[in-house]
Design a protein around this nucleic acid. Sequence first.
DNA 1: GTCTATACAAAGATAGAC
DNA 2: GTCTATCTTTGTATAGAC
Lengths: 189, 189
Amino acid sequence: MPADTKTALLNSAERAARARGFDGFSYADLATDVGIRKASIHHHFPSKANLSVALMRRYAEAFETEILRIHEEKTSGGARLLALIDIYREALENGKSLCLCVSFSSSPESLPPEVIAQIRQFRAMLIGWLTKTFEAGQTDGSIAGVAHPELESAAALAVLEGAQLAARAEEDVVLFDMALKLLKGRLSG
Amino acid sequence: MPADTKTALLNSAERAARARGFDGFSYADLATDVGIRKASIHHHFPSKANLSVALMRRYAEAFETEILRIHEEKTSGGARLLALIDIYREALENGKSLCLCVSFSSSPESLPPEVIAQIRQFRAMLIGWLTKTFEAGQTDGSIAGVAHPELESAAALAVLEGAQLAARAEEDVVLFDMALKLLKGRLSG
DNA sequence: GTCTATACAAAGATAGAC
DNA sequence: GTCTATCTTTGTATAGAC
């Protein structure tokens, strides 16, 4: 599927990082997976720190594109939030994986400062989108009981990430569903 | 402070695991910290898997004791929940640490199945305590807007753990406070 | 219970040929 | 752009003396 080796490496690394953490895969793993020798990987990504930056950049860009698309396609705040919850649920892969942001947040000591900054920007971007979404849901009535959109968004992101963590640890997506049930119960439209 | 070497090792390992993850410390680190040679650690904990079980057991027991104490000392559901939130906030150590459960949940592949089972039991125990607490808050009116104590407890635990993760990643306790602000705003008594 | 010494595997990374 | 070969460090773990 991937035309070039670099993309194949990014795909393999992202899958591995989400399933086993950034320290849970090595260049040897990527080499086996992609079908080249591990020394060759250094041609594309001189260091693993370098690779982590590329991974996070690609992930943040793809994610932002995705939520902007949701904003276009769904008209109510409730429908938009539900779509985001689905993204986090799908990323769990039945409890065997995490979204890259949660995975990277779990091992900040292993990452270069640049990735920490990317994580910060990513969360800020997402909090911004969520705040807009809760405001819309407050206005159009598709999210019940919204009084403080900014606080709702911070809490919602924490629930999404915390629920993923618990579900991943026990490999049981039901834990995710339980944690999100209260929030989903407030949604309509 | 610790009378015996074994306790000193557990203390050192718990601090390290919470600050840098279970894969983020080695027997060499513990040896330096405690002041013995790394080979000597194997006398107390034959393998790191063994150590992880001992860590999680001690942590779960201490935590359960702590929340039972809270249940005794605080009379309202709201006050009890607030005390629990404080425990999670303190465990952050200004964004430099996590509680052991979140830390271990971040690297389940590195842990023996026994610890995964301990994590499951720990969360079940905590969910049970939280459900009782939300029920109390519902009855005594010290937690506003409680309709489903069991769903509230699952969501609350996810918020606590997700907020810790974000705050740890960016080493900023404000992220924790933001994520918990909505829940804390519902508490009184 | 702690030590020295060592085994063994895996990791990230580099040099230089093709 | 990929290869072979190699370096260096670090990790977990064991053997056997004291």
